[in-house]
Design a protein around this nucleic acid. Structure first.
Lengths: 216, 216
DNA sequence: CCCTATTCGATATACTGTTATCGATAATTC
DNA sequence: GAATTATCGATAACAGTATATCGAATAGGG
């Protein structure tokens, strides 16, 4: 934790999660008309505090000019560089159910620098099929393929009861980051990152909001 | 804000998002063998602080007994009641692309109390088709259908550039909570809740983690 | 029947993240 | 060219959340 961090002193996860929003917004602007963008302008568009925007952008060191703002092209470039868009990360996906197949087909990942190279499952009905040009293989081949192709990212789209089991297989296969769509807390070694995409949690917030208004 | 809240004094979004995790874990236990569960046991399983678990559970007022813990069955019931599982919330979905169709087909939502009744799109190629028994209609019919069926939840699974436009249509149709899968910050009136399921943000965290290790 | 150990529940402290404040800088205007 | 104004960048106050500490309560063992 306390070693070898020269250029990126402290970047919080919260900030990191906002960076793609900035990027998305900046890219949606007309680059012919807008050459320079200010932090208050970004803050207004995204409903954030202007100070927070500056703080976030300061973290990736794309110096702005007082009175004008930031150079749009440069800022977009810096964000893309920082977020690693461009350098594609290859990933494997386990669980070729509805959700898994949707993720395999989701073209937008390309622009975020993610490429799912292959899917895995245990169900003979889907093994051997192709989804969006990607093969679905038997899970037994997970480890050898990941080792051979040096895959770092595993996407977990299996039912909750199987999640930990598959997670263990991924870790054993050399995966270093797991994107978990199952509503369970995964048990992993220290050096593995788990990013949870917990739909049940989001739904809880949604339905609570509705119930609150109803109970009034 | 400051009126008529007797039973649920203050529940943070963070706590609310953890509740489904507790529920999922508790339901995965063997109810024949385990009748009582303690907060330290839950904390260990989910890698949380035991005090935090007690605080979260205190929010839904399911009193535990010193030295033993909480009654498992009662706790599960209270969680389900609180989260509104059982009472079905009906929702509409806009955007019948890969992600949208996956969400239409995602059976697990049933157990979370969410029922997607119909999908909408603008593409003639998908309009009129059925996905998992749910019709896909032209977006022009969104408002009349939502009003007629008193739908409160809208699921947004369209490309980023169309997201705000569709969002406005949902608000106009009487939707009160929007589950947003597009990587944009939506502009909505005060009383509308937007829950962002931002995959780009999650990916940023993932790839940053990997890059950090590479740069070492 | 009392003592010990474990857990609940409440209070207090620490921490992280957001918002506000202030000086410095650079364009624009007169 | 000087004054004005909008913005950056840093520091400070604030809020909300997570963690630690402590007393009270109860089951089990001696």
């Amino acid at each position: 934790m306390t070693d070898s961090e020269f250029k990126l002193p402290s970047i919080s996860v919260q900030t990191l999660r906002r960076l793609p929003l900035y990027l998305e917004h900046l890219k949606s602007l007309d680059h012919e008309k807008t050459k320079i963008i200010s932090s208050p302008a970004i803050a207004r568009a995204l409903h954030l505090n202007e100070v927070q925007v500056r703080k976030d952008l300061a973290a990736i060191k794309s110096g702005g000019r007082p009175r004008t703002g930031y150079l749009l092209e440069k800022l977009v470039g810096d964000l893309e560089t920082y977020l690693g868009y461009g350098n594609i990360n290859e990933a494997v996906l386990v669980g070729a159910g509805h959700l898994g197949r949707a993720l395999l087909s989701y073209k937008e990942f390309d622009s975020y620098g993610l490429k799912i190279v292959v899917g895995f499952d245990v169900d003979d009905a889907v093994i051997g099929t192709e989804v969006a040009g990607k093969k679905v293989l038997h899970i037994g081949k997970l480890e050898s393929l990941c080792r051979r192709m040096h895959i770092n990212i595993g996407i977990l789209a299996v039912p909750a009861p199987s999640a930990q089991l598959v997670c263990n297989m991924m870790v054993k296969a050399g995966i270093r980051a797991i994107w978990n769509f199952a509503p369970v807390k995964l048990d992993v070694p220290e050096h593995i990152l788990v990013q949870n995409e917990n739909m049940a949690s989001s739904l809880a917030v949604l339905s609570k909001h509705l119930k609150k208004r109803i109970s009034k």
